[in-house]
Design a protein around this nucleic acid. Sequence first.
RNA 1: CGAGGUGUAGCGCAGUUUGGUAGCGCGUUUGGUUCGGGACCAAAAGGUCGCAGGUUCAAAUCCUGUCACCUCGACCA
Length: 480
Amino acid sequence: MAKKSQQEFVQHITPRDEDFSQWYTDVVRLADLMDYTPVRGCMAIKPYGYGIWELIQKEMDAAFKRTGHQNVSMPMLIPESLLLKEADHVEGFAPEVAWVTQGGTEPLTERLAIRPTSETIFCTMYAKWVQSWRDLPLLYNQWCSVMRWEKTTRPFLRTSEFLWQEGHTVHATAEEAQEETMRMLEVYRDFCENVLAVPVYCGQKSEKEKFAGAQATYSVEAMMQDGKALQSGTSHNFGTNFTEPFEVKFLDKDGAQKYAYETSWGTSTRFIGALIMTHGDERGLKLPPKVAPVQVVVVPVAAHKEGVLEGAKAVADRLTEAGLRVKLDDRDNVTPGWKFNEWELKGVPLRLEIGPRDLENRQAMCVRRDTFEKTPVPLDEIVESVKATLCAIQKNLYEIARAFRDARTKDVFTMEELEEQVNGGYARAMWCGERACEDEIKERFGATSRNMPFDQTPIAETCVCCSKPAKKLIYFAKAY
RNA sequence: CGAGGUGUAGCGCAGUUUGGUAGCGCGUUUGGUUCGGGACCAAAAGGUCGCAGGUUCAAAUCCUGUCACCUCGACCA
């Protein structure tokens, strides 16, 4: 009745199936993750969005520490001469570098790049820090922001400035560098699947798609709900591509001067975009419990009635003491129904409703964000029950995403099949290894090669594009 | 950067064709009644119409430029 007319004016999310891009933008804004700023292409990340990033940082940083890495901080500004030292690197990044040309009122004699990535400055420092084989390896990472002058931007997916982490390591041997490259790719895979609940395809990038200046690039590729690929993390083996021009040399055990072998690997706030587009639904965000700033929201019902607010608070306190991230929504200016919708929009995995009837029965109504399943839970068992349910949600989100991705990945053997498949998913195909075929597929279907899986069991004998003998099994998809 | 679209109160919009000094709903504030899926009544506050020029007695409205956002391409994480 009156309620209905009320609803018409409530801000609504564009249906996901109708316009996926608009849906994404709506969710990002309505869930209060970020806001636009007066600075072109640069967003303000609001507390709820930054809260997700902090959890991502915490989990990933722990994984870096476990694998022997340490954090450092490098300058944000890089002298132009350093950027010019590695030819492919300059060529790749030059179009999107922002420059500082003046200090105070004085023009600079050499302009300074605002870092688009920090290989050059790391190598410059490594040249000073590495003398002997005993100094190696150096396993450093930094959490910072970088700037790339993007022409078109989208919140979290492509912004001019973005927060990320970049690991840079140097090693005594090519083998160690390769091991490191693969180790960090595995860290990313594990993180995506077990923390973000985002299934990924791991593999090696083609020559065309590899990082500017790298010898080999590996990536983890996720699939969004519109079937497009999102490159979510990259791990590069540089060999001595940078250490030679930057003269990162060491005296080895055998008395010979050698160039160190280098790697780098990075992931960014793009992960937040991946979360939204992997798990979100028509009601908004759906966060995996491991990265949810609020894992459980406790909503008192009829909070003015005797004992309700106290009862709800007691439950919230117990859950907090048990180490969970809990929010007691004790606002008195919105109704419970309003709160339900708002916290669903914000993707909180679990909601506990506590009203007079619940307190009478010594229970709470437990509602899952992923299934909307509503179960009464005895207050005596609430901590164990909530913990178990959060685990179940984490698992369920991964399984749903995994099933979706698998259903949208198909082996293709002809260009017709490839065209159809990249319209809403990944095409797994054989490829001759030639750049020309990648170019043709890009040109005709707008799809790019994503990566080449490590399991190279062939599915056909000839290239999907040119029919020459196939050399590689590779994924194609349209990408963000 | 190419093609298209949109900028009017915190949010969603009307008004622009045919210039006349800005309106609706939600939200906000205050008081009261409510409270198990987006409550109701009453009163109030809130806008240099994206920005900069121009035309005009008069511009949200017409002209020029510019900026931001959205969609589709090209490019990248």
